[in-house]
């Protein structure tokens, strides 16, 4: 879907981004991960040409973005900027409606869409529609920023630390909600973050950057179990595997099997806690239950590989 070929940005004598080659697959969420100042924002902004590269090119569905008018390109790509950047003179609804307006969508549809999106990011439309950005908390503003990027239903979303200003609880909720939206709508998302947990939790693939260059590109599993360098290992930390489990539900790992005599865990419990229960109980398998009924069993060995999609479909309670 989006392909970076030898992408480079140079400021004076120093490189902000250097020889970056990456393919972001359609419908996947890729995290751009790395320490502060490693060039994540620069990379993201070169994709929608807010920054013009000094070398290399960006292909969008095989087409060089350089052949497109920047405005046209940007209107088809949702963008959540790091500083939120709501328009202070417009209210929440008007902020969210900006891109549909630019695209000339009918006002009535847009109005409905605005309410839908506000609901989606957990802000009650009735209460927040007419508030001005100055009346919002940092986290609320950030959610409006996410809604605004989604408003025109773009197939591609670029997000620069979209959940940075939220408290851990709200962040977890919004992250879950967002992952569901993304899975359901099959958006291609590139999300900048320096939060490892966030990347492990949300991303299908992670591009780990260091000092402007790509350190490793792969699934969270690849990075954890097959780190390409010491930097990757150190950046993720020795407990990366555990942190990865913390971001998944026990149900994601469950397989059909006989639950008889096994300690039970709830399907919504995170996998790390499930592992803790195995250690405590001295068991090497657990029965996974949902609403009292067994939906499968979870073995010790199942936890060693993270499934991309849950093998067993479960009823979704988090939205």
């Amino acid at each position: 879907m989006i392909e970076l070929q030898g992408l480079e940005k140079r400021y004076g004598d120093s490189f902000a981004v250097r020889d970056l080659n990456l393919v972001f697959a359609e419908g996947e969420l890729t995290a751009l991960l790395g320490p502060s100042g490693c060039g994540k924002t620069t990379t993201l902004r070169m994709i929608n040409r807010l920054i013009e590269p000094t070398g290399g090119r960006v292909l969008l569905r095989g087409q060089d973005t350089h052949t497109l008018k920047p405005e046209t390109l940007r209107r088809g790509i949702g963008y959540v900027i790091q500083q939120i950047g709501l328009f202070p003179h417009l209210n929440v609804a008007q902020n969210v409606a900006t891109v549909p307006d630019l695209l000339g969508r009918p006002a009535r549809d847009t109005e409905r869409r605005v309410d839908e999106l506000l609901d989606l990011v957990g802000l009650s439309p009735a209460e927040y529609r007419f508030k001005k950005p100055a009346e919002l908390s940092g986290g609320q503003a950030q959610r409006v920023g996410v809604a605004r990027a989604l408003a025109a239903d773009p197939p591609v979303l670029l997000m620069d630390e979209p959940f940075g200003a939220l408290d851990p609880l709200a962040r977890d909720k919004l992250q879950d909600a967002f992952r569901d939206i993304q899975r359901r709508l099959k958006k291609t998302v590139i999300m900048v973050t320096h939060d490892i947990d966030e990347a492990l939790r949300l991303a299908d693939r992670i591009a780990l950057m260091n000092a402007g260059e790509l350190a490793q590109f792969g699934t969270p599993d690849d990075l954890i179990h097959r780190p390409a360098s010491d930097f990757v290992r150190q950046f993720l930390g020795e407990d990366a595997a555990l942190r990865q489990l913390a971001g998944r539900r026990a149900a994601d790992f469950a397989h059909p099997g006989d639950p008889a005599g096994l300690p039970t865990v709830d399907a919504q419990l995170d996998a790390r806690s499930a592992l803790g229960i195995m250690l405590r109980e001295g068991a090497d398998a657990l029965a996974v239950t949902q609403a009292g009924e067994s939906i499968g069993i979870l073995r010790w060995s199942d936890l060693q590989t993270i499934p991309m999609q849950p093998p067993i479909s479960i009823r979704d309670e988090v939205t």
């Binding site: 963008y79 003179h89 900006t98």
Partner: peptide, 27 residues
Amino acid sequence: VDTSALDAARGMGMTGRQRLLRVELPL
């Protein structure tokens, strides 16, 4: 005018004229 609002406007694909009329002048 807040630079991050302008940046967001650019990122949404507003042209220079639209940025001026919809963001800069109102602010």
